[in-house]
Structures are given as C-alpha cells and as structure tokens.
C-alpha cells in the first residue's frame, strides 16, 4: 500500500515535470480562476462595507414631551430592545445633554448663543436616538412600538416618516446587489470551472493511449488514476501559492488607493482578518477543481 502510494506519487511528480507546457497551462488557468474567486471575495467585502456604511446612517429619533419622565422614556427604550434585540443602538439623550451638545457644537456662534439666552429656558426635548440595522422590518417594529397608545402619549414627534422611502430604497438596493453578486459569482465560477476542466481534459487527453496501455498490462484503476489526480492536486497547490502571494501583495499595495476612495476600508486589514477563510477558499477551489477534473476525465477513459 505504502509502496504503491509512493510509486503513484513518483509517477505524478515525473509526469508533472516532464510535461512542463501542459503543467504551466493548467496552472495558469487555475491561477486565473482562483484570482476570479478571490476578487469576488474582496468584492463581497467591499459591498458589505458599503452597505453597512449606508445602513449605519439609518436612524429614528423620537422626541418626548417636555414633561415626560425619564423612567417613562427608559421604559420605551426597554420595550424597543425587548422587541428588537438585534437593534444596533438605542441612546437616551436628556434635555440637559441635548443642551450641552448644542452648546458644544455651536460654541463659536455668538448669534445662536444669544438666541438661546433670550429664550431663557432649555428649549430642547428629551429624545431616544435609535439606530436600526437597516432592515425595514426592524424599522417598522420600532415605529409600531412608538405608536402604541401606552407610549405615544409621552411622545411629541417621531423623526422617521421622511426616511422611510430612503430605507426601503437602500434595502432594495442591498438585496439587489446581493442577488446580482451571487448570480454573477455563480456564473463566473461555473465558467471558470469549465475552463479548468477542459484544460485538464486536454492534459489527460494527451495520455489517452498511455491509459489504454496501462489497462492492457493489468494496472488497477487506482494505479492509473492516482498520478493524474495527484498531478491535479499539484496544479491546484501551486496555483494556490501563486494566488495567495498575489492577493497579499495587491491587498497591501492597493490599500492606500482603495482607502482614498472608501475611507475606513483597508484591503490589507480585510485580507489579514479573513486570511484563513481565504486560504480555505483558494486551496479548496484550486486543489478541489484540479482533483475533481482529473478524476472525471480519467474515469471516462477507464470506462471505455
């Protein structure tokens, strides 16, 4: 068993090094395919970042009546958190904090300071700043809580109606991007697999007569198939190493340029934080497609 495996491995390495042209072509096609999948992975990261950027800006502000008690407002907050536990943030801003924030923001504006002085009292209302996860369902849940009779009596106004359309639009764009990306990704990956399959088929086709001779001399199916499958794995592994290096280098050098267009998104950080999943995708895709293609093509000749 061990002897057989070492022989199969030796045949694979010999065939690989003796058929340099075919090996290079197969590796090149695999590199292009894996890079395509890697690009889709980065594209997914960028689109997720963009979507979260937009969704972070979707919030609701509920302004309470001047005489609303702090415990009533906190009761509303609790109710919202109970109904939508995955809500991003619910922040209570008291009258005093609102005033302080206003003063801080406009400390250099003498006209506004004077106007506030003329009013005499604190004109700000206590509020809850609610940040949803951008999902219209959650948005509707929050709106419903605020409109129930128990709570609406404390509320002066809710600043959300003018944002409803925007939220629905964002949600529909988000879901369209995801669907489109998924369909495009699947089509590209299928095309890439077909190209790799045909390249490996060409490589194995050149050994068609050799396979038939091996059968005639009584080699077992695995003794014939093994070297081709290991060659497929070698193609995949080398392609993976090349792609991994290209991804790391391009993520590092493109990072400042992409950060200039997408502030807050660092491609190299994204690469590092997803390094294992990327290794898994590239390796599984490269070696997987290489091995499966070889297996299928050789089986065809073994069946004849």
């Amino acid at each position: 068993m061990v002897t057989n495996f070492s022989r199969i491995f030796k045949f694979a390495v010999n065939d690989f090094s003796r058929n340099k042209g075919i090996s290079l072509a197969a590796i090149f096609v695999l590199v292009v395919t894996i890079m395509l999948v890697t690009w889709l992975f980065f594209f997914h990261g960028i689109s997720k970042f963009l979507i979260s950027q937009v969704q972070d800006r979707i919030d609701i502000t509920a302004y309470f009546k001047d005489d609303a008690q702090e415990q009533d407002i906190l009761g509303v907050k609790e109710e919202i958190l109970k109904l939508s536990p995955d809500i991003k943030a619910v922040e209570y801003v008291s009258k005093e904090r609102a005033m302080l924030a206003f003063n801080e923001k406009h400390k250099d504006n003498a006209v506004l300071a004077k106007a506030l002085e003329e009013v005499g009292t604190n004109p700000f209302l206590p509020s809850l700043n609610i940040t949803t996860n951008g999902d219209p369902v959650q948005f509707a849940e929050v709106s419903n809580v605020l409109q129930t009779a128990n709570f609406s009596k404390f509320i002066d106004k809710v600043d959300f109606s003018q944002k409803k359309d925007t939220i629905e639009k964002v949600f529909s764009i988000t879901s369209n991007i995801n669907t489109f990306g998924l369909i495009l990704g699947i089509i590209l990956v299928i095309l890439a697999i077909l190209v790799v399959f045909n390249t490996i088929k060409l490589a194995v086709d050149s050994s068609k007569d050799e396979i038939s001779t091996m059968r005639i001399v009584g080699a077992t199916d695995w003794f014939i198939r093994g070297p081709f499958i290991i060659q497929g794995a070698i193609y995949g592994f080398i392609a993976f190493v090349i792609c991994f290096l290209i991804s790391a280098v391009s993520a590092y050098f493109l990072s400042p340029k992409i950060s200039a267009v997408l502030p807050g998104f660092n491609t190299f950080d994204y690469f590092l934080s997803n390094i294992w999943i990327l290794v898994l995708i590239q390796l599984a895709f490269g070696a997987g497609v290489g091995i499966i293609s070889s297996f299928i093509v050789v089986r065809k000749y073994l069946d004849v």
């Binding site: 010999n14 065939d15 050994s207 007569d209 050799e210 038939s212 001779t213 001399v217």
Partner: peptide, 14 residues
Amino acid sequence: KLLPAKTVYENVAY
C-alpha cells in the same frame, strides 16, 4: 504501445 512519457527503464519497470 509504449508509455511515451517514461524512459526505457521506466517502461519496463512499470
């Protein structure tokens, strides 16, 4: 019906 990618020695050894 020789194995073209193998040497003379390897053809027999196979």
